[in-house]
Design a protein around this nucleic acid. Structure first.
Lengths: 122, 122
DNA sequence: TCTATATTTCGAATAATATAGAAATATATT
DNA sequence: AATATATTTCTATATTATTCGAAATATAGA
């Protein structure tokens, strides 16, 4: 029972649900997710940890980046997402997130985060 | 999107999930639910309010009792429960809860709550 | 090796949620 | 009407979650 409660808890946060829907487009690094959600890297990292512990996502290192992707093989999660897919396809937030994902890359978003830190020069 | 987040939040609490699974056995009054979960009536009432606001349960008055039941007609919720049904059927907590439900009635649980308040006289 | 980059962990502040008990409300019974 | 019962609302408190910034860790490249 706990397993299911944890999964519902994981899905019951707006930012985490957005992350999962974003990962349906393509695998993403932490700074890309941070860019789309517009929240701190450390916050993204903690959400990713929760999703990983729930078995919903997996990660692998690629150079200095950590790339996150949907875990796959979770039948229950697939059924949930399948049942809600039609709704999410039409969701304005999801559409907006996807549009941003298509514009960014792991190389670009990193430098953008730098700009912010050093004061907006651009 | 909010609608789905609210539903996941509603399902992401152990007591609320137990309530929903209990209501699959039969409609229950508030004091019966309080008896099974072993938590305060006011707490049960607030959980029921959340589940009702999420559209997962409905209620009707029967004398001085308020009887709660699964709402029905919620396709997404039905799919979730269907997908998890096999697991919950085997869950020891769910089995225990059902066993208690079969032993109690709205008339009996009310008097039991009274005993507690007046000190356990046996 | 030193520096820059990407991520994670840690610590603290804030916000949200769950809980219980007391008071209020609604209904049934006498 | 008065009393008992069932539930809800209100208030306060305790627990849990979310968030950020700073410090720590890990990797890449000069």
């Amino acid at each position: 029972m706990k397993k299911y409660i944890d999964m519902f808890k994981a899905l019951g946060d707006r930012n985490r649900l957005r992350i999962l829907l974003m990962l349906r487009v393509r695998p993403l690094c932490v700074c890309e997710i941070s860019e789309v959600l517009n929240i701190a890297l450390s916050t993204v990292s903690s959400h990713l940890k929760i999703l990983r512990n729930t078995g919903l996502i997996e990660d692998n290192k690629d150079g200095r980046w950590v790339i996150y992707r949907l875990a796959g093989g979770n039948e229950f999660f697939d059924e949930i997402m399948g049942a809600a897919a039609a709704h999410f396809e039409k969701d304005t937030q999801v559409i907006r997130d996807r549009r941003i994902i298509q514009k960014i890359s792991r190389e670009v978003c990193a430098s953008k985060l730098n700009e912010k830190t050093n004061g907006d020069l651009g």
